[in-house]
Design a protein around this nucleic acid. Structure first.
Length: 728
DNA sequence: GTGGCCCCTGTTTTT
DNA sequence: CAGGGGCCAC
């Protein structure tokens, strides 16, 4: 049985069999970390005779959890059922539901997603009469989320400035709405779990006692709350096995802190550290390019990744005229390769922002090639899908005020914003919730004490919806989820409402049917799990298992995956690295890690693509080649064709791309011009107006000028294209 | 209360 | 360019 151990390399073997109580495994990309994790669990069970019941394994995505479970089933058989294995959020939800008695919500709480959170914040801003232009919901959301990651309630948030005071007040109201809706948000799942353990030693003891071994995947992506949680869960046996890679930390903006890796080592001075540097995935050229990129980052554990898979092809770099040509090139290239015998599923196209998928999708449609698009948001974010989910949520938990507000007038039934406001007010005056009033009207009709507080028209409209809701609740008690689903659809005439016979309408109805299919899958498990899993799906979870078509996905969603041939598109300044990261070195470092994650997904071939012109929002803008391309040594790169470039000056008549006879060095060797601009100069640009030169350098045979514009902020420009005029 | 039109703005990544 | 919000007419 322990034959499996013989197939491990010495470092992996050490990690799997180590008897250290705390172990940190720094695992480079493609170094077999999932394998180490699963083998470790199997080893604990089979060799150390640890009961699966006493093991907890935590991942970041459901997909990773599922994969581990499947592998473990093969090794352990039925034993895996006793094992706790899931995402941080799912595990927390499970704990909170079983310990709800000690918490300020019931065990059938709903989980608010990002959309819900946004609408709560907007509602609060309106209630408090705060201008949402000045205090953007997104930025307030950020404040609240950061506070929760740091386990601070509204009363612990600082209010040194007026801004902070506003955020604090919104946070207070926001919490009130969550509590009265019997709801928690994403961050609450973690925060309340930590709080639960802090305030209830006997509960902490119970879980700590149970989990003899705690194992964690993607440790570099944990935030403060998650780190604390792990400490509590392992507070009795102190056996923590964490696997991660600082270089693949790409969720800083979500509170993740790769310094938890350092914290771990200082919190557990006796912990041991193992480096996995052997890469089983990529060819050496891909690895060398990746290393060259990541080596530019400071403060990291140096690693020396190596592969025995041979050199492999050079990194291809294609410089397209514009974003349309970029998409066309990628799809053409894939078409050619499929024609010469490769499988569609071997390819993946990765990009920095979701918006970039559109041109690619269009190109695939034109070429009549099927493709796979990764992204949960694309399905669960659709209006019709959210509508139905809201109905179900409301039936499951009538206090869910976000869902109530969403569906009370869907399809339009004469309940406008005014009536909704009145309903809210009357409920508050009577110390009740809106749904209490609504259900009273539904049940008692004109005999309800609230009937006369509304106009007769509003009252009967509300009573109608109230009775629908009441009936669904009763129906849901004794009927399976799919039947409830159909019943709701029928009662509100939803098909007629969204399917107007147009192609769009058809599509919307298709989405409803897709959700219905999902509801059938949950017939046994029930509505609670259905809603919870919907709230906690990640984009990664939607990556199709069997791949027979090229995959389109963001760089973030690509983590943990691998493809034979990877295309990374949009290698332009402002996109990758993204413009929002240009000023902050920490964020720039994260952009680089993101690029690194993308590169290391490639098993055999990596193609980098950029576009000299891009229509970002309506307008065409010239772009500069991404600085990350400069990080990759010339000798690893093969330029696929040329165009009249921003940086390279080639004759206009030059073919757009010719069969790779082009040598990058030729134009680069031309004598660089003298600097025309200098830092401190005032200049004007035809579209951005006046600005101040911040930096200038000679790149190739052109001059790169960084200008701070009064209108648009910092821009990096090619002097030959931008035609900046020097003022005065 | 509803639906349509127009302007404005903003523009990453997602459990 | 696209989604959201405000405003107007029915």
């Amino acid at each position: 049985m322990m034959d499996a151990l013989k197939n491990l390399n010495p470092q992996q073997h050490e990690a799997v069999t180590s008897s250290a109580r705390q172990l940190l495994v720094l695992a480079g990309p493609g170094s077999g970390k999932t394998r180490v994790l699963t083998q470790r669990i199997a080893f604990l069970v089979n060799e150390n005779k640890v009961s699966p019941h006493s093991i907890l394994a935590v991942t970041f995505t459901n997909k990773a959890a599922r994969e581990m479970r499947t592998r473990l089933e093969r090794m352990l058989g039925k034993g895996v059922n006793a094992l706790w294995l899931g995402t941080f959020h799912a595990i927390c939800a499970r704990i909170l539901r079983s310990e709800a008695d000690a918490l300020p919500f019931d065990n059938n709480f709903v989980i608010m997603d990002a959309d819900d959170q946004q609408s709560i914040i907007k509602r609060v801003l309106k209630d408090l009469n705060i201008d949402d232009k000045l205090y953007r919901p997104a930025s307030i959301h950020n404040v609240i989320s950061n506070a929760k990651n740091a386990m601070q309630g509204p009363d612990q948030v600082k209010s040194r400035t007026y801004r902070e005071e506003i955020s604090k007040r919104v946070y207070e109201q926001y919490e009130k709405i969550l509590r009265s809706s019997n709801a928690v948000d994403f961050d609450d799942l973690l925060m309340w779990s930590v709080r639960l353990f802090e305030e209830n030693p006997q509960i902490r003891e119970k879980y700590g006692q149970r989990f003899e071994h705690v194992l964690v995947d993607e440790f570099q992506d944990t935030n403060q709350a998650q780190y604390e949680l792990l400490k509590h869960l392992s507070s009795v046996h102190h056996c923590l096995f964490v696997v991660g890679d600082e270089d693949q930390s790409i969720y800083r903006w979500r509170g993740a802190d790769y310094r938890n890796v350092l914290r771990f080592q200082s919190d557990y001075p006796k912990s041991e550290k193992i480096l996995l540097e052997r890469n089983y995935r990529s060819t050496q050229n891909v690895l060398d390019a990746a290393q060259a990129v990541i080596n530019q980052n400071k403060s990291r554990t140096p690693k020396n990744l190596y592969s025995k898979r041979g050199e492999g092809p050079l990194i291809s770099l294609y410089d397209a005229v514009d974003d349309h040509a970029e998409a066309a090139y990628v799809v053409d290239d894939i078409v050619d390769r499929i024609a010469s015998g490769q499988e569609g599923g071997e390819f993946a196209i990765m990009y920095r922002t979701n918006a970039q998928s559109r041109l690619l999708e269009e190109a695939f449609l034109r070429a009549n090639i099927p493709y796979r698009l990764v992204g949960a948001q694309r399905f669960y974010g659709r209006r019709e899908v959210k509508d139905i989910i809201s109905f179900l949520r409301l039936v499951h938990n009538t206090y869910d005020s976000v869902s109530l507000a969403r569906v009370i007038n869907v399809p339009p039934r004469g309940v406008g914003s005014k009536t909704l406001l009145d309903l809210d007010q009357i409920a508050q005056n009577n110390n009740l919730t809106s749904s209490d009033v609504l259900l009273s009207l539904g049940e008692l009709g004109q005999k309800s004490p609230f009937w006369d507080t509304f106009s007769s028209r509003s009252a009967s409209m509300l009573a109608h919806f109230g009775s629908l809701l009441m009936n669904w609740r009763e129906f849901g008690q004794s009927n399976p989820l799919p039947d409830l689903f159909d019943r709701i659809l029928a009662d509100i005439g939803y098909k007629a409402y969204i399917d107007d016979g147009t192609e769009m309408g058809d599509g919307r109805w298709e989405n409803v049917l897709e959700l219905r299919r999902l509801a059938y899958e949950y017939e046994e498990r029930g509505i609670t799990e259905f809603l919870e899993n919907i709230a906690l799906v990640s984009d990664q979870d939607t990556v199709p298992e069997e791949n027979d078509a090229p995959t389109l996905l963001t760089l973030h969603a690509a983590k943990g995956l691998e493809f034979s041939h990877v295309y990374i598109v949009g290698l332009d300044e402002g996109l990758l690295p993204h413009s929002r990261s240009l000023e902050d070195p920490e964020e720039m470092a994260e952009e680089r890690r993101l690029f690194y994650v993308g590169i290391t997904r490639a098993k055999n071939h990596l193609t980098l693509v950029r576009a000299g012109q891009r229509s970002n929002y309506g307008r065409f803008e010239y772009t500069m080649e991404s600085r990350f391309i400069d990080d990759i040594p010339e000798e690893l790169i093969k330029r696929e064709g040329v165009r009249l470039g921003v940086q390279r000056l080639t004759p206009l008549s030059h073919p757009r791309w010719e069969p790779s006879s082009y040598e990058r060095s030729t134009p680069k060797k031309e004598t660089p011009k003298e600097s025309r601009y200098q830092a401190g100069m005032r200049v004007t640009h035809s579209t951005w107006g006046s600005g101040l030169v911040v930096e200038t350098r000679i790149l190739g045979n052109d001059e790169t000028v960084t200008v701070m514009f009064e209108s648009v902020g910092l821009k990096r420009l090619a002097a030959s294209v931008a035609r900046l005029e020097i003022v005065g």
